[in-house]
Simulated assay, not measured.
Amino acid sequence: MEPDTTYSLVRAWAGAGGLVLMVALFIGVLFYALRPGNKKKFDRLARLPLEDGDGPDDKTGDRTEAGK
């Protein structure tokens, strides 16, 4: 077997294996994200930026302002 042929064969198998791996990973992430058991968790996380909390302009926290 010539080196060019060996390289081409390894490259083809690596490309196909990488494609199969990425497709399997994509399907796994899709399954995790769309599973009904995660709906409550994702809904809570989606509302998180809109809830009142200890943001930079929140005066109710125990932060002290510099200079006062």
Score class of each variant (00 low, 15 high):
M22A: 15
L45N: 06
R63L: 05
G61R: 01
A16E: 14
L34A: 09
D58H: 05
K68N: 10
D54K: 08
T60W: 00
K41R: 12
D54T: 07
L9G: 05
I27L: 15
V23N: 01
Y32D: 07
Y32V: 11
T5W: 03
D43P: 01
T60E: 08
A46V: 04
M22R: 11
D57H: 08
T64C: 06
L34N: 11
R63K: 15
K40P: 01
F26S: 12
L19E: 03
V23Y: 02
K40T: 04
R11Q: 10
P56K: 06
D62G: 07
D57L: 14
A33L: 13
E51C: 06
A24Y: 13
R47E: 12
N38K: 10
A46F: 05
V10P: 00
K41D: 01
D4G: 12
D54N: 14
A12N: 08
N38D: 01
N38Q: 12
L45G: 01
D43S: 07
P56Q: 03
V20C: 10
K59Q: 09
A24Q: 10
G67W: 00
T60H: 10
G53I: 06
P56L: 05
D54L: 10
A12V: 00
L19Y: 12
V10S: 04
L48Q: 12
N38S: 08
L50F: 15
V20F: 11
G55E: 02
V20T: 15
L45I: 11
V29L: 15
K68T: 10
E51I: 05
G55M: 02
V23P: 00
G53A: 02
R47D: 11
A66I: 11
G61K: 06
L25V: 14
G67Y: 02
D43F: 05
K41T: 05
D54G: 08
E2R: 03
V23E: 01
T64W: 12
M1P: 02
R11H: 08
L30D: 08
G61F: 02
S8H: 06
K68L: 12
R11I: 00
L19N: 06
P3Q: 03
T64F: 10
L21V: 11
D58K: 03
Y32F: 15
K59P: 14
G18S: 07
S8A: 15
V10E: 06
S8Y: 03
